[in-house]
Design a binder for these strands. Structure first.
Lengths: 151, 151
DNA sequence: CTTGCTCCTCTAGTCGCTAGAGGAATTAGG
DNA sequence: CCTAATTCCTCTAGCGACTAGAGGAGCAAG
């Protein structure tokens, strides 16, 4: 089934994943170690390219490496139930929704800050004032979640 | 002007910033090194607590440490123009807007994925299929930006 | 005077890469 | 056939903004 034989550079060009990132994925066991040429270079087959494309797409959608690992494992066992994959995707969707809500709240507050700026001296700057005195803003964001999630 | 004298634990409770994080802020020069008690413990004053509150609020709004450093410096020199603070805040606002747009696009695609899931076997799972075959989705997100920004 | 809490410093780990050093192999051109 | 450019190899270290844990010292209450 493995027809083509691609160098890592070709794999990078085709998949859009950078060369060091491909090696990184191999190092963490996300991508299998491909066979090597006589000179010691990685030789990828079509299946590897598909896997790389899968990974890339999943990363673009913000799935974490561990989630992608789980999804790849599900893909490798096609007789299993869809439920696990569904749950992973739903979980990611909920994260995205929460993140959008949180960022929208931030946006409102930031807009209030910059709109209120009188462009005068710093000692009357709305931006600085708002940051210094939390009570001057719609103080909902200071809940108990950590401040700045990664995605 | 420095009236109260707070331990690092009290400062953490009042500001909502964790103890190790306060020490971290000191180590990177964001928070000045406070005087110590005889026993070698940090003794914070009111000004330090205000500064911590400022930092916390700015972090909640997603400002990077370097941006906060700049904003604090502006606060310390009240005669300066407001323009710099305004620019920093506007820049952050633009980032947030871009991020919301990008996440909204992700949300649409994730919704399509989970809605199309027939809850059957993995070999007909829409989630896995979509990830494997990029052309099956509204393939706009694979532009040239890096996949998952930090905030 | 002991118990338990807070505090101290220091190092290392998190995540998902990215950058760079130093060297070997391949490919294109002369 | 030789050289130069390109690609590849491994390895270590760095990014941002913390977080976790080791190992030890101070301090307040009973």
């Amino acid at each position: 089934m493995t027809i083509g034989a691609f160098t890592i550079g070709e794999a990078a060009r085709v998949s859009g994943v950078k060369v060091p990132t491909i090696r990184y994925y191999e190092s963490i066991g996300l991508l299998p170690s491909p066979p090597r040429t006589e000179g010691g270079r990685r030789a990828y087959g079509d299946a590897d390219l598909s896997r790389l494309a899968f990974i890339r797409h999943a990363r673009e959608l913000g799935f974490e490496i561990e989630a992608i690992r789980a999804l790849l494992q599900l893909q490798d066992e096609p007789a299993q139930s869809c439920a696990a994959a569904d749950a992973i995707a739903r979980h990611r969707l909920e994260e995205v929704e929460r993140r959008i809500a949180s960022l929208t709240a931030l946006k409102v507050e930031l807009e209030r800050m910059v709109e209120g700026c009188s462009h005068g001296r710093v000692d009357r700057c709305r931006v600085i004032e708002t940051l210094a005195d939390h009570s001057r803003c719609g103080h909902d964001h200071g809940g108990n979640e950590s401040a700045v999630p990664r995605n």
